[in-house]
Amino acid sequence: MNDTGLGFSGVLIAVLGGAVRVGTPFLFVSLGECLTEKSGRINLGLEGNLIMGAMSGYAVAYLSGSPWLGVLVAGTSGMLLGFLHALLCQQQRVNDIAVGIAMMMFGTGLAFYLGKSFIQPVAPRLPAIALGGWSDSAVVRAALDINVLFIIGTLLAVAMAWFFRHAKWGLLLRTVGESRNAALAMGINVHRVRLYATMAGGFLAGVGGSFLSLYYPGSWNEGLSSGQGLMAVALVIFARWNPLYCLYTSLLFGGAAALGPALQSVGVSGGYYLFNAAPYILTLGIMMMTASSQQRCAGMPGELSNV
């Protein structure tokens, strides 16, 4: 049995494997966005965090030789960008959507600037756990190489769902997100809660970026991210602000993005570049279906005005 002999089932396995591989950055960014939006603020700039995370993670992993240190630094750089975002949004008459666009540009530019010298060298990759050792098919084995970050992300989604529902801080965060006035009446420092939520969300987005450069595709270049950070915002709407649904939708998006390469591997290459548009079209379709001019989305934090 060889790689190309699998035909249709080969495509299916490649898509499933791709769902996990391509979906992991989506998972982290959407969890980060979910956390931020639960506090009543949108961060459209996570695309910048993602790219900055990818660059800094790769650079540190290359310089230090430890990919995990890279992940940590990637998260920290994302957190710093989140801090800047939160600081700007606290000002009067400053629109959080516009700040998001600015942060996206700034993060991208900064990452390209600082990352210029890291395009050539090869950094150590993050380890994967081979769950496909039982199979003698290379396709199956490649699909079942599950990265540790994906497992961490899955656990994190479960933990966040618990956190929002049962933890005291989770309740605090949701109060701020549902009604600023209620939170103020309770004596909660709204600005501070949102600051922490934006920073934590930025951290997760940075970690998602490090997955891009340190595992899949696994190198740093300027075309690394193509809107994953922004699609995550749409993904959170689709997931109804529920961390567990974020996990499922990330896998769905990952699968959609893996469709083009999977089809190409079995020889269907005619519409390759059109298949690249699949995740964007899927996002748009989902937004059309789930949004409604008549009513607010179920599960949407009350302070979010513009999604």
Partner: peptide
Amino acid sequence: LKHYRNVNETISSLLLNYIAIAILNF
């Protein structure tokens, strides 16, 4: 899309950028 379906215009317009570039490459 914004008016009839209340789809966030910032996100949808950005998604359309990527779709346009995919069509261009195609």
